[in-house]
Design a protein around this nucleic acid. Structure first.
Lengths: 228, 228
DNA sequence: TTAATTTGTTAGTCATGGCTAACTTTTTTA
DNA sequence: TAAAAAAGTTAGCCATGACTAACAAATTAA
């Protein structure tokens, strides 16, 4: 009875596609997501994506017209949000209890998010006392599947003299995460923009008595809240 | 470099077969394990087993001659023990930290044991302060893959007047585990054999001021240490 | 010791989820 | 607006790991 609600019976692959599509649609906030874009994001061939999209359409998780853009149904979104909830809760657990660092959590969480057990994830949530944010600063959807995103202001969008607080980092690249840690930045670090160099868009920043120069590419991946 | 040691690159199926074979060989202590027996244990067809055994032989995890009994190589045993370690550590975590009961842990642990991360499991071990036994009383292999089994004395092997302590339960059946919990038995419970009935081999036992009659089948699945 | 039964093997099929190559539709741009 | 480029689709292939059906070998029982 209640068991049916726990198990959605999707394969790991199906889940991966739904989550990826959600991330492209909602998180990266693209107006239009196409087949090849999704293929690219997942590192599979366009043919594979086309195939899977067909299946997900027939199961009622995806909608699209031939040669048209892709979209998720409510059911599809719900699955994706649950995966994101699981991913972020596991990342939080790994960092806060199992001594994992920012850059180590992603691959393992990628596996753990496919474990099927409603009780497991809700109990893990309770065990950690219902954390609001994951180690990268992203909001964790709650047990009801309520999803919200932080307004994303990048460090690169600020100007000389501005002061901001580190709210989140893009967790897409291990090298980036390692770099962030290495220079000593952590969530909630207060950062002052000392100088924005026109020539190469590099930015001179200060935090905790440290002065660093970072590239535009780096600053694009750091999300902040403006303080001054 | 060290990464190679962490990832053995076996599929979930391959792991399942190795673990099953190990359990039949070592835990159930069978002198001879055959193809159909393994198939039966895993609820797959003999043809599937035959197929997989071929593959595992070619990969160096299994040895056997045509029409002969199956055996594991050291490499095969090592994989199996690591799976059992992961399974039992996760069960311990689920019971001790996430409010799972005896009978709920198995299915989830079955999924979690396939997560590939050496660090994850070793840190989980450390987090729980290196537990020696899982919730069913079974010994947990350590990080070096050292495996040992409790001498298995069943409740059914004792006689009237004997007193024993509950050391472990067979975790093979959810119904059995539920039953054990329901009547109030827990690990380390002291049990006195009041009467063994010749007629149907049922046993009258006493523990914590409770008197219960249990069947032979039940008593076969309860492992104890004789005290008196 | 031969016949029956059990156990093991092989061949061929299917679904999943990848792939490439070839093709079609849509979009861009010259 | 027509040609080029990009995006999407289809057909057909492959590996994995299930399956059934048919057959072979080994074991057990008559």
């Amino acid at each position: 009875m209640t068991n049916k609600l726990n198990s959605n019976n999707l394969t790991k692959s199906e889940e991966d596609y739904l989550k990826a599509l959600f991330q492209l649609l909602v998180e990266d906030n693209s107006a239009k997501v196409g087949n090849n874009q999704l293929a690219d994001y997942l590192n599979v061939s366009p043919a594979s994506t086309n195939n899977m999209i067909k299946k997900l359409k027939s199961k009622g998780y995806v909608v699209s017209e031939k040669y048209g853009k892709l979209d998720l149904t409510e059911a599809g979104k719900s699955i994706a949000v649950r995966l994101i909830r699981k991913h972020r809760l596991w990342e939080t657990f790994l960092c806060n209890y199992l001594n994992f660092t920012w850059d180590e959590v992603h691959d393992v969480a990628e596996q753990l998010e496919h474990i099927k057990s409603r009780k497991l994830i809700d109990e893990l949530d309770r065990f950690m006392d219902f954390p609001k944010k994951d180690p990268h600063g992203e909001l964790i959807p709650n047990a009801n599947g309520e999803y919200s995103i932080l307004p994303k202001v990048t460090l690169s969008s600020l100007s000389e003299g501005d002061v901001c607080k580190l709210m989140a980092v893009n967790d897409g690249s291990v090298n980036f995460l390692k770099y962030v840690s290495a220079i000593g930045l952590v969530l909630s670090s207060e950062i002052k923009i000392l100088e924005v160099r026109e020539f190469d868009n590099s930015i001179r920043i200060q935090f905790n008595d440290t002065v660093e120069t970072v590239t535009r590419k780096f600053a694009d991946n750091v999300f902040v809240k403006k303080v001054v």
